[in-house]
């Protein structure tokens, strides 16, 4: 067996997986609190990627950077995260909050509308062409770890580390801070949380903000690793992020992280060993299988409804 190839796929899987995990977290957090599938989440991720690209262009473009690379990346992440976060908050405010007590289908349709609106906005503003981060122009991809079969470029290392850092940050936030406690309470029982004095609206806004923030970061990181950003990238990434959230158990934060990694590995190995054309098909089959066999996912609780 070709060890080099295998290790390469592992690295690919880890990189993809950490990105999917970030996207999945946004889905799972929003679902946990609102029991709503935020269709538009994929487009938020896409907008984050474009925001990063915008910063890159403003600061001179890949060939003529005016700031050191680390500053550049920091600014890109900051812009993408804050921009995506703001976008998420606006979406919540206008597309979901008025429909909080409407039948389930209404926010779903609204989300569909938002998703297409954002896609076409991106098409309008940025055109249909692929834009490229061209990371290889300002980062030496040869640097990194090269140890035996293991070959990771510094960009991927950065992506993996940043993603894990963000995930650890989120876990700490949810477990240790007051906001985190409020989020958990609201996810468990919204009415009871409100009656305990928790400002549910604020918690929901914070959830959307954090989830979108992570998606924005994911967008920039995908741009850095895979270079290409385009207006449709949110659709498929969103679907896979959602699949990851479901596999891990929708509503469960560790579940989303686990699911993301699983999907990342699955995709890497299928692309590497089978074919890249049918990888969507495969991911989709996993989704169906999980929904049929174990709908609560790997780490989720079965929802008990009082009849």
């Amino acid at each position: 067996m070709d060890v080099d190839f295998f290790v390469q796929q592992v690295v690919n899987g880890l990189t993809l997986g950490s990105v999917y995990a970030l996207i999945a977290l946004g889905y799972t957090m929003v679902y946990g609190i609102l029991k709503l599938l935020n269709f538009a989440h994929g487009e938020v991720y896409m907008m984050g990627a474009f925001a990063g690209y915008g910063v890159l262009t403003v600061l001179g473009g890949p060939l003529a950077l005016s700031v050191p690379v680390l500053v550049l990346i920091g600014l890109m992440l900051a812009a993408a995260m804050l921009g995506a976060g703001a976008l998420g908050v606006v979406i919540e405010r206008f597309a979901y909050r008025p429909l909080r007590n409407a039948p389930r289908i209404a926010p779903l349709i609204s989300a569909l509308g938002v998703s297409f609106f954002l896609q076409s906005t991106a098409l309008l503003l940025f055109g249909a062409d692929f834009r490229s981060y061209e990371t290889y122009e300002f980062v030496d991809l040869a640097s990194g770890i090269h140890w035996g079969p293991l070959n990771i470029s510094v960009v991927r290392i950065g992506v993996i580390l940043t993603s894990f850092g963000l995930m650890i940050g989120l876990t700490l936030l949810v477990a240790r801070t007051r906001l985190g406690k409020a989020m958990r309470a609201t996810a468990y029982d919204r009415e009871a949380a409100a009656m305990q004095g928790i400002d549910v609206d604020r918690v929901i806004v914070a959830t959307f903000f954090i989830g979108s923030l992570l998606a924005g970061a994911a967008g920039v990181m995908v741009g850095l690793v895979f270079y290409k950003v385009y207006f449709l990238m949110g659709f498929l990434a969103g679907l896979k992020g959602f699949t990851a959230a479901v596999i891990g158990g929708i509503g469960s934060i560790p579940g989303a992280m686990l699911g993301g990694l699983l999907i990342g590995f699955a995709e890497a190995f299928i692309t590497g060993y089978v074919s890249s054309t049918f990888q969507d098909f495969f991911v989709f089959s996993i989704l169906i299988a999980i929904l049929l066999l174990r709908p609560s996912g790997l780490l989720g609780r079965a929802d008990i409804q009082k009849v």
Partner: peptide
């Protein structure tokens, strides 16, 4: 698409 998306949001 832009208008259809906006239409759905507004309708809901």
């Amino acid at each position: 698409i832009l208008l259809l998306g906006a239409l759905l949001i507004v309708l809901m």
